[in-house]
Design a protein around this nucleic acid. Structure first.
Length: 837
DNA sequence: AACTCTGGCTGCTAGA
DNA sequence: TCTAGCAGCCAG
């Protein structure tokens, strides 16, 4: 405490610098950009030598002399117990501290000296931010949208002309500038780009929808191509789509919202309004036509930046991200908004106060996976009534605090009681049967021991952020909902919650410099143990704990008061006892009576739908929405018909007075849908499937079959290859839309959704696999006695192995003329089964 | 090139 | 008809 106070005083003496952005020059200095009180952009140079650390006790006189004489090293400084080594260049620092690129098992220069180096890989910008205790300023942000020559595929973007741009101020929402190409020549485009950069010069941050995949690389490519001299790194580039996706996953209701992340679709979902009616794939023609046509292109362009502004007004995600960056000390761009960056920036500041440094980590080390959460197999399925749900509040953070779990509090003492839980990589460590020392706490089932004092780096961080969150939550309660002050408090509370929960993941990630597998393993393992101990106690009170996932318990039986008293018992008696038995000196573990379901449809692990009776004691009202987890309705990779049918089924199951007595109604629901799917008039978007490319196309390996030919690739990969051959942009992350036209043989035959011609879809497959199967599983859970599988079958059987098919796919690809009505084609349907049904 | 974690469900292909 | 392995997406 004492040292903390003097440090605070010292910091007051040297005020923290402000920074809106900082860029390393690649040699020995940073360009720091800040905003003065007058709002002007200030740019200054700050010396920043690349550095690493050595433990003073590791360095003998000879080594010291050698380092002093090295031409690559410019300074040696003693900082507490550490020797700070400053280098002439980052390349030389890396060469001396990382394994040689060539030759396996090579050792670095310092490896050969048997000298461990610390934090050599830390980027100079990060080091300066941490050591100067810089404060991240709110950037002046603007929205950007480009329209480019539609005739040129993305893969050749360097040769696509920019036709027009729109920049909008992120605060006022007003247009800050627009530009249109005059004539189709380089001089003209160069002028257009110079105008753009003049407008951007007033801003620190550029935000674009899908910017990291389109607008940013495009503007860079053309700027370079046209010979406009600009340093791109002086701006913070932020992809609004990526941000929206990350923060919206948990918020989205149904799979419908996940179908498309196009600005149009998101605007419709968030705002209820969309883009101008304009076909951007004809941007070149519009520009070329001039006059009114060209004016419409410009209007359309400006509308896109307006939509981004409006989306931010509603979601506040950009502000939320800035709040996190401000707390952690990272810059709000695509790079600085990752979990590892947040946590590294945050923890390194704390570590500095403690004079802690971390091992150099140029590349990731071991990636052994570890055991995670406990998910109980549901012992009751189907329709259940009056289900109490308890959950641990902030389970993992509270465990980290209570067991003082941190990379540096872990000891090498190992108490093994249950060999079954012993991790395989510890088999060679002798079992120590001695008693747990008084100043250690023990991780249940695993036997790892952590020091209880002093408070670890990780628990301190978690507690610090938790206190901030609590403070802002309390402030929020005192404010009128919806006011700007309330929104500010709400955003801060949310930001702190996100950061508090992210620590566990980062500490468990081999990509992080704080990675310690035992810490992640201990956190998750203790959580698993706590939930199971809690369930045991529930059983002893004749409450039936029938399901639980990670930090929650679903319980049948008992009144609300009885369940509350059970929760209270756990908090007052059970956890204090359990934690004390394991040597914890702190208890932050807390169980809460979260909610009660009026009716729950339990389908399986991580899959259920429920209506509320109350939430945290507040009774549900008639328009309380059901809670749906994991079911196809929630997923973006299912077809629309499947989501619609499942939703209707769920609504009836949850809404009906006595669903158990209404079997016939559900049978009717199924037959109606079957009729509709097999015979009805459907739209393309009813049955389009969409999946994202998880990696670059070339990384999908084609396996060889036994006969030496290539095995089939996943449907969306096949289609992506077709699209790529046509020049489309199908990189990693691209959503590939496709339609299955024939699933009667393996592999299935698929086409790109954009090639769809009426009637080519395989409706037997659509019903059996895509639409009915998801609802069938729900029905089977609710009415196990009924033969639900019998409604699935609809494809006429093959009477004998099909004769050499007369290319069924091609046959059907020809439009039938009889548009979407499937009315008179019993013949066509049979044709799908085989050639001669 | 960048990356918070693990658990779990489902669909498809290939091979028995 | 079954299973292993790949892939994607979701729960927590």
């Amino acid at each position: 405490m004492r040292r903390r106070a003097t440090e605070v005083a010292a910091r007051r003496a040297a005020p923290s610098p402000l920074a809106v952005n900082a860029v390393w020059d690649g040699v020995g200095a940073l360009t720091v950009i800040s905003r003065g009180e007058d709002g002007w952009r200030q740019v200054r140079e700050v010396a920043a030598a690349p550095a690493c650390f050595l433990r003073l006790t590791d360095v003998d006189v000879d080594t010291r002399r050698m380092l002093t004489n090295s031409r690559a090293i410019v300074a040696l400084k003693i900082e507490g117990d550490w020797l700070r080594v400053e280098w002439r260049s980052r390349d030389e620092l890396k060469a001396a501290t990382s394994k040689p690129r060539w030759g396996k098992d090579g050792e670095s220069f310092f490896d050969q000296l048997k000298l461990a180096t610390y934090e050599a890989d830390v980027h100079p910008v990060r080091r300066w931010m941490v050591e100067s205790d810089a404060v991240v300023q709110r950037p002046r942000g603007c929205y950007l949208d480009l329209e480019t020559d539609s005739r040129v595929p993305f893969s050749k973007k360097e040769s696509a002309r920019i036709l027009c741009w729109s920049v909008r101020d992120a605060v006022t929402g007003k247009v800050a500038g627009t530009g249109v190409l005059d004539t189709d020549d380089d001089a003209s485009e160069k002028r257009l780009l110079q105008q753009l950069w003049q407008v951007l010069a007033r801003y620190d941050q550029v935000i674009a929808w899908n910017g990291s995949r389109f607008d940013f690389p495009m503007v860079r490519a053309r700027t370079r191509e046209m010979g406009v001299n600009v340093n791109f790194r002086h701006w913070l580039w932020l992809d609004h789509l990526e941000l929206f996706r990350k923060l919206n996953v948990s918020a989205s209701e149904s799979g419908d919202e996940k179908q498309s992340m196009a600005l149009e679709a998101v605007a419709q979902a968030v705002l209820g309004e969309g883009k101008d009616d304009f076909d951007s794939s004809r941007s070149w023609d519009a520009w070329f036509a001039g006059g009114e046509e060209r004016a419409r292109l410009v209007t359309y362009n400006a509308r896109d930046t307006e939509l981004m502004h409006l989306i931010e007004q509603v979601t506040g995600y950009i502000e939320l991200q800035f709040t996190i960056c401000e707390l952690c000390g990272t810059f709000p761009d695509d790079y600085g908004s990752h979990g590892t960056q947040f946590v590294e920036a945050f923890l390194m500041r704390l570590a500095r106060q403690r004079q802690m440094h971390f091992k150099t980590q140029w590349d990731i080390g071991e990636t052994n996976p570890f055991k995670g959460a406990f998910v109980m197999e549901p012992t009751r399925r189907g329709i259940l009534h009056g289900v109490h749900v308890a959950d641990f509040s902030g389970m993992y953070p509270s465990i980290i605090e209570s067991w003082n779990l941190s990379p540096e509090t872990l000891t090498d003492i190992f108490l093994q009681e249950n060999a079954a839980f012993r991790p395989s990589y510890l088999v060679h460590v002798p079992i120590k049967k001695r008693e747990r020392p008084a100043d250690l706490c023990e991780v249940p089932n695993y036997g790892y021991c952590f020091k209880t004092q002093p408070v670890g780096l990780l628990p301190e961080a978690v507690t610090h952020v938790g206190q901030l969150r609590k403070a802002w939550n309390e402030k929020k309660k005192q404010l009128a909902p919806g006011t700007p002050e309330w929104k500010e408090a709400d955003r801060r509370a949310t930001a702190y919650k996100i950061v508090r929960n992210i620590f566990y993941g980062v500490i468990s990630s081999p990509f992080s410099r704080f990675f310690k597998r035992e810490v992640g393993e201990s956190t998750a393992g203790t959580g698993s143990w706590l939930i199971q101990e809690t369930m045991k106690v529930a059983e002893s009170r004749s409450l039936l704990g029938f399901y639980g996932d990670t930090d929650s318990g679903f319980v049948l039986g008992g009144t609300d008061a009885e369940f509350q008293s059970f929760v209270d018992h756990c908090n007052r008696k059970l956890y204090p006892r359990l934690l004390a038995e394991h040597g914890c000196q702190r208890n932050e573990v807390k169980l809460a009576y979260e909610k009660k379901f009026k009716r729950l449809i339990m389908v399986g692990k991580k899959r259920y739908a429920a209506s509320y009776e109350h939430f945290a004691g507040t009774p549900a009202t008639a328009d309380s929405k059901p809670e749906i987890k994991g079911l196809e309705y929630k997923r973006g990779d299912t077809v629309r018909l499947a989501r619609a049918m499942q939703k209707q089924l769920i609504d009836r199951l949850l809404g009906a007075e006595d669903p158990e007595a209404m079997l016939h109604e559900f049978i009717e629901l199924v037959t109606t849908w079957k009729e509709r799917v097999l015979q009805g008039s459907l739209e393309l978007r009813d049955f389009t499937q969409a999946e994202k490319l998880g990696k670059e196309l070339r990384e999908y390996r084609t396996k060889k079959k036994k006969d030496g030919s290539d095995a089939a690739q996943p449907a969306h990969v096949q289609v992506a290859k077709i699209l790529k051959a046509r020049g489309s942009d199908v990189g990693e992350g691209a959503r590939i839309e496709f339609v299955v036209v024939d699933a009667s043989s393996s592999p299935m035959k698929v086409i790109p959704a954009c090639d769809y011609a009426s009637g080519v879809e395989d409706r037997f497959y659509l019903w059996e696999s895509l639409v009915y199967a998801p609802s069938q599983r729900v029905l089977e859970a609710c009415f196990p006695a009924h033969p639900w599988a019998s409604y699935a079958k609809c494809r006429p059987p093959k009477s004998r192995p099909a004769p050499k098919p007369r290319s069924t796919a091609k046959h059907r690809a020809a439009p039938t003329g009889q548009a979407s009505l499937f009315g008179n084609d019993g013949a066509k349907m049979s044709a799908k089964g085989s050639g001669d049904a």
